[in-house]
Simulated scan of single mutants.
Amino acid sequence: MRSFDETATGTFYLDFLGFDLVFEHRSTTDTRLYMGVKKDECALHLSEWGQIGFLNAQ
């Protein structure tokens, strides 16, 4: 899923909805965030990268 604001995304998924952070990834400290969260059986990947998951979309 696409995210646009790291702070707002963390506040919403981790604090408000109660998801647990599974991982965070950045290529370098100044690049966009890619993170995984999980709550019960629901796991989501959240990314500031615009085309993640749509690489073959026309």
Results as ranks from 00 to 15, higher is better:
M1H: 08
R2I: 13
S3H: 04
F4I: 03
F4V: 02
D5K: 05
E6Y: 07
E6Q: 08
E6V: 11
T7C: 03
T7S: 12
G10N: 12
G10W: 04
T11A: 13
T11Q: 12
F12I: 04
F12K: 03
F12P: 02
Y13K: 02
Y13W: 15
Y13A: 05
Y13T: 06
L14P: 02
D15S: 13
G18L: 12
G18F: 09
L21P: 11
V22L: 10
V22Q: 10
H25W: 15
H25P: 00
H25C: 01
R26L: 07
S27K: 12
T28E: 14
T29I: 12
T29E: 14
T29K: 09
R32H: 11
Y34R: 00
M35A: 05
K38M: 14
K38A: 14
D40W: 08
D40H: 08
E41C: 07
C42S: 07
A43W: 09
A43G: 01
L44S: 06
H45W: 06
S47V: 06
S47I: 06
S47C: 07
E48H: 06
W49C: 01
G50E: 11
Q51M: 10
I52P: 00
F54C: 02
F54P: 00
L55A: 09
L55C: 05
Q58R: 10
Q58E: 13
